Lab assay of single mutants.
Amino acid sequence: MASQGTKRSYEQMETDGERQNATEIRASVGKMIGGIGRFYIQMCTELKLSDYEGRLIQNSLTIERMVLSAFDERRNKYLEEHPSAGKDPKKTGGPIYRRVNGKWMRELILYDKEEIRRIWRQANNGDDATAGLTHMMIWHSNLNDATYQRTRALVRTGMDPRMCSLMQGSTLPRRSGAAGAAVKGVGTMVMELVRMIKRGINDRNFWRGENGRKTRIAYERMCNILKGKFQTAAQKAMMDQVRESRNPGNAEFEDLTFLARSALILRGSVAHKSCLPACVYGPAVASGYDFEREGYSLVGIDPFRLLQNSQVYSLIRPNENPAHKSQLVWMACHSAAFEDLRVLSFIKGTKVLPRGKLSTRGVQIASNENMETMESSTLELRSRYWAIRTRSGGNTNQQRASAGQISIQPTFSVQRNLPFDRTTIMAAFNGNTEGRTSDMRTEIIRMMESARPEDVSFQGRGVFELSDEKAASPIVPSFDMSNEGSYFFGDNAEEYDN
């Protein structure tokens, strides 16, 4: 783990906690998980779902989305002020799938948001429990990260689609708070800032007046979040320049895209947490497990152990491969979309394939898809080993990566060399080191050039047997250095459309 220093740990961010010791953190995270579980059980009762239907990941996603929508204050306010045809701002819903006479049927349900809020609060001892809501947002974000390569979004903001390893959390809503900021990748933060800068260039009043003052505060806050992700002084200094700019424009845009590229080699610290679907927490609570009393951590053995003992089902389209669908969801559960496939294969105990080789589309089923041909199958979400999630980018030494994705962002704290394609990355730096950030740029390029592919990161860190909950005997895996390590390699994943 990167030293926490003055930073709060993510469990504290996750639970809005002030400084807590490890036991208190485990208890408050457990409380959050228990609340999600209780809410899910109650919703299944309301909807009269069978046990099997309640364990269907598509039903879980609909129920999670309903509660997130019920608590989305800004959108609710907007919907009330701008009524649109056929949208009731006070209601929320989605597809629920039921097994009827041996076939899967889709039923569109509609609930009062007020009623959903009441059920959620009741499951969370009367609190709004925003930490639990954020947790579900991060699960949705991790699922998107594993399912889609955001080529269009990258290109629109002047970045290269091969930089997708920097895009963790790119679909997280803005209201996801400190826990959300911690899991956002460098590219995601750059993209958010670039969008602001572009608006400022096109709209003279963007930075002016009372609204402009708020915009400015948001801009500086985002700059500080991004600065905190960088691990070298030169990158941090460049972020200070971007933040202090009187009138952010093209120079800042250039600096930010430069920094994003540099992060492929001088990786930023991005938190990883295993956020599971509500249909995993519900049955665990129903079986009598007391998360608050037992304590829970999002970055240790607990999620692995929970998945070892969970039964989750998914709808499967006619030509999809259930094992591939399982891999997709497994990666999402562990926030591992940008991790090295060699490491993932070792931990999972079966070969993890790149996205383009998977015969599976996303987990969600569109409303126009034919239910007649839908089957369902068990998702295999178990693992051979477990490993500690990392909050750091690993040290800054790398190795060759593949054509589709030119770097990785480690999820697990496991000893290995970190793949990246130096030639491709360095070719993108057209040696432009003039301007006010020239000395920093020169320094950053120097550090990137001296990074050695064969150097090892996370020295001495290994994986653990599932029986080793105290992480007492690390097993340090050895990897084939020459092997392909990137998930979005030469990829044809669908595009994420909101």
Rank of each mutant, 00 (worst) to 15 (best):
M32K: 11
V456M: 15
F253R: 04
L166A: 13
N432P: 14
F412S: 13
S176F: 09
E254L: 08
P410K: 02
G249P: 06
W139R: 09
L276D: 11
V285D: 07
T396N: 10
S359C: 11
G228K: 03
G86V: 12
N250Y: 08
E434H: 15
V100T: 13
N202F: 11
F291A: 13
G30R: 09
R118C: 01
D240E: 12
E494D: 14
I109R: 02
S176C: 15
P83T: 12
H272G: 03
S274E: 06
V190P: 00
M426N: 12
K227N: 11
E369S: 07
F488R: 01
I444K: 09
Q311H: 04
V183Q: 02
S482N: 11
D480Y: 09
D439Y: 10
S486N: 08
Q399G: 07
L49G: 00
T350K: 10
S60N: 11
Q399M: 09
V312N: 11
E484K: 12
A286M: 11
T424H: 07
G362A: 09
K229M: 06
R216S: 11
L306C: 01
T411Q: 03
A366I: 02
V476N: 00
F258H: 06
E24A: 06
A451D: 14
T411V: 15
I217W: 02
V463A: 14
N319I: 01
R416D: 04
D51L: 14
S28C: 14
R391I: 07
R441I: 10
L79Q: 13
L110W: 10
K113M: 09
D340R: 05
R156M: 11
R208A: 00
G209E: 07
D340G: 09
S457E: 08
Q4T: 11
T215Y: 07
R416F: 02
N21Q: 09
Y78F: 13
A451Q: 13
N498E: 09
N319P: 05
G94F: 05
E46G: 09
A471V: 10
R121I: 04
L47Q: 05
R400A: 14
L226N: 08
I109N: 15
W120Y: 09
E469G: 13
N144H: 07
S245V: 00
M481L: 08
G460S: 10
K31V: 08
A129V: 15
G185N: 13
R317L: 00
Q149H: 12
R204N: 01
L344T: 14
G431R: 02
S486I: 06
S269A: 12
D145Y: 11
R441M: 10
M331W: 04
P303G: 09
I201W: 05
D290W: 04
R246H: 06
G404T: 12
N370R: 05
H334K: 00
K87G: 01
A123R: 07
F464A: 03
R208G: 07
R391E: 01
E484C: 13
Q364G: 05
Y385I: 04
P161V: 14
P354G: 02
R65L: 04
T411K: 13
C223M: 12
Q20I: 00
W330H: 02
P419S: 15
Q122P: 00
K91V: 00
Q122K: 14
E244N: 06
E64P: 01
F253K: 04
S141R: 02
Q168I: 06
F420V: 10
G94P: 02
G394L: 11
P477K: 01
I301M: 11
K7V: 00
Y40C: 07
R416A: 01
N309S: 13
I57V: 15
P173R: 12
N205F: 05
K31L: 09
A251N: 06
R416G: 09
M371F: 07
P318Q: 12
T171V: 06
G35F: 08
G282L: 03
I109L: 13
R117L: 14
V285N: 11
S377M: 12
A237S: 14
Q231D: 10
K90L: 12
H334G: 01
A251Q: 08
Q364K: 09
L56G: 00
G185T: 10
A451P: 05
L259Q: 09
T232M: 04
A332V: 07
S28G: 14
T390M: 04
Y281F: 07
S457L: 12
N250Q: 05
N417G: 13
R55Q: 07
I138K: 04
M331H: 07
H334F: 06
K236C: 14
A181T: 10
I301K: 13
I406V: 15
C333D: 00
H140M: 05
M222C: 09
T130R: 13
N247T: 11
D72G: 12
D160K: 05
A336M: 08
G394E: 12
S335V: 03
G431I: 05
F458W: 13
T188P: 13
M105S: 00
G485N: 10
M137N: 03
F479V: 07
K325C: 03
E339L: 00
